[in-house]
Design a protein around this nucleic acid. Structure first.
Length: 497
RNA sequence: GGCGCCGUAGCCAAGUGGUCAGGCAACGGUUUGCAAAACCGUCAUACAGCGGUUCGAAUCCGCUCGGCGCCUCCA
């Protein structure tokens, strides 16, 4: 294992070293299921998916936990608006989240704990904190006593004194009255008996906003996690508070490594549900192949902001996402290249011959890029060199009396395997992916596939008769419709660029 | 006010002390009946500005400008 990862706590890159080398225990903060996943979630979970894939590809056993937060005030609010029960809403949104993750090619986590299944563990954690003097009950609520945890602020690198009360413009006066100090945060929030909630030693209510992750992570993975991750916006207060309540309760270091991914931005401004400037995974996947979304997310280093641009029509409707269009073209290139490799004539493959270093070296180059703080952008750059060389191999096999070495074809095949295993790219059926992309574009342009096929037959006849003027006229008609033809030895295929 | 991040060629984007990033677009070429795709080449002696350290700075230090994030909703 030679993976270097940036660690938020120490503010530097350091080796990722699991406490128990036989099992790396990762916990990533999952979604609060009151709405569809947006591109910020997509980026985050694609990044951690690649982390898990890379660790496994490097021979490391991993236990990957990603929770579902199904108890939250926003869920309650949304369920009222929708006129459905909180449970029905969270069940529906959890299913949608799973569908979005699957579309993105993310492997399911090994553990997916839900807050609603861990109320006893939450009670136990809160009780332990009260017993140790790190928390106090106050009028049906329970608060964490921040001053009882001197290390508070170590993750976000700000001392308690530096916190500006109400700087975010969100102060609940009723809550402030119940607190000993403004920086204290809720572990349990009392609620009216009739409201959605659970019984507790402190009365009917719901868990506070951070305690669930500590309770669930420690319940499943033990008091010290090897890595805890999430979006940059969770550093403060969410993860800071998790550290405080976990370490105050156990006396153990809560996580050995803290990893945070950068934001997806729109107009250089953070995409978030509260700002309403978000696009859902569902919306993007309707327009583009889901793997293009994954590719786009991986084309930027995970800690940098990813800015999303778009083009609008006169009515202010989004007509284009250049980032995803570009990415989709690259995804097409990946699959087309894989298809071409598979189509090399067996008779052209011979026992000996040159094997280009870009073919043999790719898996190692990809691994090296990912070992350096999960540099997926560098890994994708490596894949470009690799794919170019695969195409060169294909071209070599097509030249007059051309042949290619068996070892070169094998190396190319292994390169695609590495791409699939490490990044989750190029792993689907090329026919399916390319077919969907073409069909989606055909629909958008109003192109009728059957009509195209008809024209192709007519053009075939014209070409057989050496009537190139007629053949070219037919092709020009198709080109005018947005259809591009590719004449090959095996016949003519078409695509929509 | 405090803490932190970012600024790399027409556009997107790696790199963070010493020969190459990579992609898109554009333009040449190979190939093709002609195209498209693919490949090769050019664009590219690029690193916000000004100072400093160094044999050598996109990279380290200081200042300035511009953009952004967090300071108890958030991936």
């Amino acid at each position: 294992m030679a993976l270097l990862l940036h660690d938020t706590l120490s503010s530097k890159k350091k080796p990722f070293e699991p406490l128990d080398p036989s099992n790396a225990r990762l916990y990533v903060c999952g979604p609060t299921v009151y709405d569809r996943a947006h591109l910020g979630h997509a980026r985050c979970y694609v990044v951690y998916d690649v982390l898990v894939r890379h660790l496994r590809a490097s021979g490391q056993k991993v236990t990957y936990a990603r929770n579902i937060t199904d108890i939250d005030d926003k869920i309650l609010k949304r369920s009222h608006e929708q006129g459905e029960s909180p449970g029905a809403l969270t069940e529906r949104m959890t299913a949608a989240f799973h569908a979005d993750m699957a579309a993105l090619g993310n492997l399911p986590p090994d553990l997916e704990p839900k807050v609603s299944d861990h109320i006893p563990q939450i009670h136990d954690l809160i009780t332990a904190l009260i017993d140790k003097g790190a928390a106090y009950a106050s009028d049906g609520d329970v608060y964490f006593r921040v001053h009882a945890f001197p290390a508070y602020g170590k993750l976000s690198h700000r001392p308690v004194e530096a916190l500006v009360e109400g700087a975010s413009g969100r102060v609940d006066e009723a809550e402030t009255r119940k607190k000993e100090a403004p920086e204290d945060f809720a572990l349990w929030k009392g609620a009216p008996e009739a409201e959605w909630g659970w019984a507790s030693p402190w009365g009917h209510g719901r868990p506070g906003w951070h305690v669930e992750c500590s309770a669930m992570s420690m319940c499943h993975l033990g008091p010290t996690l090897d890595l805890h991750g999430g979006g940059l916006d969770l550093v403060f207060p969410h993860h800071e508070n998790e550290i405080a309540q976990s370490e105050a309760a156990t006396g153990c270091s809560y996580a050995r490594h803290w990893m945070h991914n950068g934001f997806v931005e729109v107009d250089r401004t953070k995409m978030s549900k509260s700002l309403g400037n978000f696009f859902t995974v569902q919306e993007i996947v309707r327009r583009h192949e889901a793997e293009a979304l994954r590719f786009a997310m991986l084309s930027v280093h995970y800690r940098s902001p990813l800015n999303l641009d778009w083009e609008l029509d006169a009515d202010g409707q989004v007509t284009k996402f250049p980032l995803f269009e570009d990415a989709e073209r690259r995804v097409e290139y990946v699959y087309t290249t894989r298809q071409r490799l598979a189509a090399i004539e067996p008779a052209r493959i011979v026992a000996t011959g040159e094997v280009h270093e870009a073919l043999t070296g790719f898996p190692q180059a990809l691994k090296a890029a990912l070992d350096d703080d999960l540099n997926t952008a560098a890994g994708i750059a490596e894949s470009s060199e690799f794919l170019k060389q695969v195409n060169e191999l294909v071209e070599s096999s097509k030249r007059k009396k051309g042949s290619v070495a068996r070892a070169a074809v094998d190396a190319a095949t292994r390169g695609f395997e590495a791409l699939a295993v490490e990044l989750g790219l190029g792993a689907q059926s090329p026919d399916d992916v390319l077919g969907r992309i073409r069909a989606r574009r055909a629909t958008a342009l109003g192109v009728d596939g059957a009509k195209v096929e008809e024209a192709l037959l007519a053009r075939r006849a014209a070409r057989d008769a050496k009537d190139f003027a007629r053949a070219d006229a037919l092709r020009d008609e198709l080109v005018a419709m947005g259809v591009e033809l590719m004449d090959g030895a095996a016949g003519t295929s078409w695509r929509i660029p």
